[in-house]
Design a protein around this nucleic acid. Structure first.
Lengths: 151, 151
DNA sequence: CTCCCAGGGTTCCTTAAGGGGACTCTGTGA
DNA sequence: TCACAGAGTCCCCTTAAGGAACCCTGGGAG
């Protein structure tokens, strides 16, 4: 199938896709995040083929998003989020929020999130790191940055 | 290849992936967002195969994320974001932010975002819709919601 | 009135990736 | 020394992505 390599594009979205854009990868991260850290747990929970799970885990480890570490004197390993991976969970939270709003239907959200700081069931909103006001699609202008190619 | 159908899972992340998780879909949305609205523009900018672009556009239209509308008396169409699609741009902004931080390297971010409200080049941060404090992976507990399956 | 053109797709073929299930390998603990 | 559990490999089959050629429609120029 020779999937196109997104990592060479001068676009942080494309580059991020190159790390977690493959099928299953976000779901693997979700599971690791909620505490399913072992190969067989992941395979059973997701119903993913073992071959593909191996490939995804290796790729995520190569990319520094997951760490593979032994938890036994026998050859047993578990996968945990690195700092880089933990920050990717932001992405999962936004995906979950959008899915809750637009796809959950009558039944309502399958998962709720309690915020430690205030103790409430809540969701996320995007805010400007500079002024703290909401920051969404129509609140911004994209401009070329230093890493833009100058073809 | 018979990709697994994520839409049946009781998980808003999986359901969102079912809408925009296929290869190229987020990049198509990015392009439409920044003003590349026509088939040939998208095809040229992305270098995507015309066949796959057709499939992705149809799927995004079916999902209500894009709208296909004529712009000429000849059979000419352009694709624009619906409200549902515009809210998906949040996802792109978070992806871009993560890519800027972890993957941009020496060259720096390829694209910068100016926030209308404050006029500054800035990024996004996730905040609790309830209390306004930062809300990231380690600030929350997931709990079963009403739409959770009760197997 | 005809030809040409641009936009927006289809069709077809090749190749590679996902699905599924069987098989393997390694240390323990009974 | 045997069974076992965890963590993968291996192999085959199907299907999706890439790529390039082809098609169809309604103007507008000559």
């Amino acid at each position: 199938m020779q999937r196109t390599d997104f990592s060479a594009m001068a676009c942080s979205i494309a580059r991020t896709l190159d790390v977690v854009g493959e099928p299953w990868s976000p779901l693997v991260l979700r599971d690791v995040w909620v505490g399913l850290n072992r190969f067989d747990q992941l395979q059973a929970d997701l119903g993913i083929s073992r071959k593909v799970l191996t490939e995804r885990l290796n790729h995520l480890v190569d990319q520094g998003v997951l760490e593979r570490r032994p938890y036994d004197r026998r050859p047993r390993y578990e996968y945990v989020l690195t700092e880089k991976g933990t920050e990717l969970v932001d992405l999962l939270m936004v995906m979950a929020g959008w899915g809750d709003k637009w796809l959950a239907g009558e039944a309502g959200p399958p998962v709720l999130y309690r915020h430690h700081a205030c103790g409430e069931i809540s969701g996320v909103d995007l805010r400007c790191t500079h002024c703290g006001e909401p920051m969404h699609a129509n609140d911004i202008d994209p401009l070329p940055g230093p890493g833009a190619t100058v073809e």
